[in-house]
Each structure stands twice: as structure tokens, then as C-alpha cells.
Design a protein around this nucleic acid. Structure first.
Lengths: 333, 333
DNA sequence: CTGAAAGCGCTTACAG
DNA sequence: CTGAAAGCGCTTACAG
């Protein structure tokens, strides 16, 4: 039934069907009715293709075609509920709209991000979505040079349309919740600590601004030492907290569930006082709610962010002013 | 500097560099030293490529080449720590070994799985890894017809090499832990309930076998009604538990963190008796440990599973007998 | 209703 | 040290 070592091509099929390669191609790519090819031939070809396990060579097909229909995405991680959801929903929505999604994961490594972007452009993506990229403008510039459209998601860039969460507002809401719960549960009014993220990135800056402004309004001064934005990794968050042995009430604003994993490790090895801590986390994880003392989490609205992204793909805006998407607060207990 | 609408090709570069397209191609794909092209020309070409934002057209390149170096993977979900880790580590390991990884996510939908497999074959993958596929043998058969190698990961198939966890042994260990803790904490000896998964799939069957056998050894009979393997989804797990209102001690073996999310919802709406429940979960999530009553989780050894997978890619085995990888038990409290 | 032919952008023997 | 030429597997105007 099958060829041994080489893949079946339209020429093989043409020979078997006693038709021309053109006709076979047309049957297989669905244009046969337009070309007025007889149903009989079409059915013969499709049956043969099935029997031979034929599948089109996308390489050859794309090379000849005008459009690739491929949309690419680079994402820092899959092993994270927020980014995992983005990648998963992106693929589903892309397929539903007739695009072919290709996603790749770049470990929050600037060099790998750029390499992956280049690779996706080599794959002839029509549009490249950079999610949480450390240097989105470098990627946008390269895309522009190859006349590939680019869009930033999660972290904004100056040189391409961006869709991001309203980090400032959500950080304010979360900060207020933590403060309120510290006061109510512990009779303590702050200042809170801020753990995780990178000061240099837009989201951390916006969240920090919300974090500080709410406390300022309540006349709480936040000392420099309380800002521990040492990076997006469990290790770094745990390290930043290592010397902190609370001897009284405290409250932590945790920037991302990635950092929360480090916070959890730190929390678990505390010999005492763990019940005097209140946490809030910017990012949602369905199991995060069970961390003792966790009073709420910010859930970014992935579905709506992606909907806006696809709107931009279909209909490029003239401005690159970031589109802000509201977040949801999830509270516990 | 850049072309407006069309992408730069080696012909554009050749014109600019006043060299032949062959020479440009050779410079760009790294074979120029072998071809004894002058360093001067090589440097001129590379500089131009840089200036023009050139990137090779992979489609054209692959069409001409003998090997694609692409390895494909289909995975049920990204938004899950186990599968997210598999996808993420697969990409990293593939890159490290000089392959080009393409991963796509198929929502545990048999039809989409097959479509995605076909798509990846169209992309000329050299090898396709089916992770947790519902019908791996159908995929293997199609791969074979296209002379593409296939490997099953997580769930085994008959027609291709498979790398899976030692589900039976790990389920025994987890069952023993839950039973021990029920007895110690609650003075209660079972029988336990089994929630989540699909009776038809190999992993659920193996885990259930371990679950039953341990209890049998302790002379505990498990009633049919205690086996609630209604699928891999939070909703289905929550639904299966809906009519269960424990009025005394109970213990649950939760099959997958996906099901655990449904268990958590159910747990949260219990009006009473929640502290009389002990849980164990087959699958690891760093935040799962905080579910009250969760006594332990099974962590599948993703790194070692993937290492074995890449060994198979490099060196195809003659037998398709599944390779079992031991799991780790993580205990809490 | 159908086929011959050109060409997508590369790579690589082959021939200097 | 370098170029002309063939060809990878398709698609699509063009010409019957």
C-alpha cells in the first residue's frame, strides 16, 4: 500500500490516477470544483491519496502560495498557568479563525527570544506575537525589516501595537485588599513588601506604582528595602526573602505566580510567625488560593487580551499606544 | 535600507554584493569555508544580509534539503503543570541537540490530535511525539505511511515505542500513603474513592489497578460507586462528586491535577466535614500542597522521560514494549 | 473539462 | 576560488 522510504507526491498520485499533476493538486487543495474537474476524477484522486497516506508538503505549497496563514507566538514559559493559558487559547483561537499557529517558548532569555523570532520569520509567519518579551522593540524592528507584522502581548513595546493588562489599577486593588486584611486580621497597617519581577520591565513598574500610591494615600511610607524585585524566578524570590524572619505581622505583594513558588518555599521553612503573614499575588493559579494567608489573586483576562490581539491581526491600528485590558480580582476566605 | 513589501532573497543580496546567488547561499548557510569562498566576500555578504534584515526562507531551504531536523510534538494542554513542563523541556532539549522543535496542543480531542499530527507531517517533521494521545496507534499508522517515525509519551501505544510513567507502582505508593494517613489522622481505614481519568486509558487503568490491589491486600473492598473515572476535566470531577456529602471520614485518590481543580471546587463548597477528608493526587503541582488534607502528590519524572525519548529519536529500538519511568512521591505535613 | 509550463527561493553536485 | 544549472513539490495563470 505505502511507499517505503519516500513520501508520496502529487506526481505519484497522478500516475496512479492516470491524471495530470495539476488536476491532482487542484483536487487536493479544494479548488477542483472551481476548475470544473469531474467529480469522478476527484473522488478517484481523494481515495488514492487516502490509501497512499498522502499529505501535502507544506514547504512546497507555501513556497508557491502568496500567503502562509501562519501566525507565530513567542512566550516565556509554558509551565505557568498564565502563559500556558495564553499559548493554549492562542492556538485554539487561531485555528478557529483559519490561521495556522506556531508557538515557541523562550525561557525569558533575550537572546533566545530573538533567535526564535528569526526562526518564526524564516517560517514565513504573517504576524508575530511577542508575549512578555524582554526586548520587544528589537523584535519589532527585525519583523519590520522583513515586512512581518508584530504585536506585543503582556509587556508593551514602543514600535508595535501592544495589548497589556491594566497593571496599575489591578495592583492598586490588590494592595488595598492586602492592607485591609492586614488591618482586620492582624491589627497591623503596613508597610507591605513587594516581591518578584524586574524593576526594568513595564509591568513591574506599573504594579509597583500602584502598590506605592495606595500606601502613600494611607500615609504609609514604603522603605527601599521592602522592594524586592529581583527577577522572575522562584529561586530569586526565595533568595530575596532568605534573611527576612518576621517577628510580627507582615504583608507581601507577590509579583507573579512564578515568584509565588519561591515565596511558598520560604513560607514553608519558617519556624514561626507564618500565620502572621498576609499575601496577595498578581497572577492567578487555581491552587494558589490554598496558600495560608493568601487573601487574593489578580487574574489577567487572557481571553479578552487575545480577542483584542486577533482584532489587531485582522485590522492593524495606526497607533501603537498600548491597549489596556482590565483584570479581575479573586478574593479568598 | 529595507525593501518595502517583499522579503529580501539571496538574489537581492547577490546583486548588492556583486556575487552569484550560489556564493551568497553558501555564505549564509555556513558552508562557505568548505567551498573556499574568500573571507572578504563572505564578510561583505554577511554585512549586507544584516543590513537588509535577511532571513532565509525555511520553506525553500527545506524543500531542497534532505533532512528537516524538525521534531514535532502534540500535547493535550499547555495550561497544566505536567504537560507544560513536558512541552517546555522538550523544546529546550530539542534545541540543545540541534533539532528544531514544533509543538502544538490538541485539547485531548481525538479529531484535533489527528489533524495536528497530519499538519506536523506536512511540515516535514522527522519524528512525531504524541503526548497523552487518545488514539496513538492511529497516529503511528499515519506516520508510518509517510515514513515518519513516531513515539508515544505519557500514554502508550502498540505500534510505536512508548515512554510512560510506572503508573501502577506509583499509584500503590500513593494509595498506601492516603490509607495510612486516614488511619492515623482520622482513625478510619477506607475504602478510598478514585476521582478523575478515563477507564479506557492505560494510565487510569494502571493506577486503578494499583489503587485496588493495595486495598485488597489490606482486606478493603472498594465498591463500584467509589470509582469515579468520568474524564479529565475539572467540571467532570466536580460533577462526579456533586452528590457526595461526606458525613464522616473519607479519602480521595485524585487522578491528575486537572481533576484536582474540580475536587478543589467541590471541597470549597462543602458546608461541613471538609477537615475529615484526606487527599492524594497523581500528578504534581507546586501549589497543590496547600489544599487542606492533601497528604501527597506523585511527581512524574519529566526530565528522565524526555531523556529516554530523545534516546529513542537518536537510536530507534526494535521493540515497542513501553519503557517505564519511576515517579517520585512528594509528601506533605 | 483538463494539461503543459513557469516559477516560488533555496542547495548542491558539477564544471571550470 | 566561483558560477550556471538542475531540481525539491507544489500552485496557478494560460491555453486549449
Amino acid at each position: 500500500m505505502e511507499k517505503d522510504s519516500k513520501r508520496t507526491t502529487i506526481y505519484d498520485l497522478a500516475k496512479l490516477a492516470e491524471a495530470s499533476p495539476s488536476a491532482v493538486s487542484s483536487v487536493l487543495n479544494g479548488t477542483w470544483e472551481k476548475r470544473r474537474i469531474s467529480r469522478k476524477l476527484a473522488e478517484r484522486v481523494m481515495k488514492l491519496a487516502d490509501e497512499q497516506g498522502y499529505s501535502v508538503n507544506i514547504q512546497a505549497s507555501l513556497l508557491r502560495r502568496e500567503r502562509s496563514n501562519i501566525v507565530g507566538m513567542i512566550v516565556p514559559k509554558y509551565d505557568n498557568r498564565y502563559f500556558g493559558r495564553i499559548a493554549e487559547q492562542f492556538e485554539a483561537m487561531a485555528r478557529a479563525k483559519g490561521y495556522f499557529p506556531v508557538v515557541t517558548c523562550t525561557q525569558r532569555d533575550a537572546k533566545l527570544e530573538f533567535e526564535a523570532a528569526k526562526e518564526l520569520i524564516s517560517f514565513q509567519v504573517e504576524c508575530l506575537i511577542s508575549v512578555g518579551a524582554t526586548d520587544p522593540d528589537k523584535i519589532s524592528a527585525f519583523c519590520a525589516a522583513s515586512s512581518v507584522r508584530s504585536i506585543n502581548l503582556d509587556l508593551p513595546g514602543k514600535d508595535a501595537p501592544s495589548v497589556i493588562s491594566d497593571n496599575y489599577s489591578a495592583a492598586r486593588v490588590l494592595t488595598e485588599l492586602i492592607l485591609d486584611r492586614c488591618e482586620k486580621d492582624l491589627g497591623w497597617i503596613g508597610p507591605l513588601r513587594f516581591v518578584g519581577g524586574r524593576l526594568a520591565d513595564h509591568n513591574t513598574a506599573a504594579r509597583l506604582e500602584g502598590f506605592i500610591s495606595v500606601q502613600k494615600e494611607r500615609s504609609i511610607a514604603v522603605p527601599k528595602s521592602h522592594i524586592m524585585a529581583t527577577g522572575y524566578s522562584a529561586e530569586k524570590a526565595a533568595d530575596a526573602l532568605a534573611e527576612f524572619n518576621p517577628d510580627g505581622p507582615s504583608g507581601l505583594f507577590v509579583n507573579s505566580t512564578i515568584s509565588l513558588e519561591g515565596v511558598v518555599r520560604w513560607h514553608n521553612q519558617l519556624s514561626q510567625g507564618a500565620d502572621q503573614i498576609r499575601y496577595g499575588c498578581f497572577d492567578w493559579d487555581p491552587f494558589g488560593s490554598f496558600l495560608p494567608g493568601n487573601v487574593g489573586m489578580i487574574e489577567q483576562d487572557v481571553t479578552s487580551m487575545l480577542a483584542k490581539t486577533f482584532k489587531i491581526i485582522a485590522n492593524p491600528p495606526s497607533s501603537t499606544k498600548p491597549i489596556l485590558v482590565p483584570c479581575k480580582l479573586r478574593t479568598f476566605h
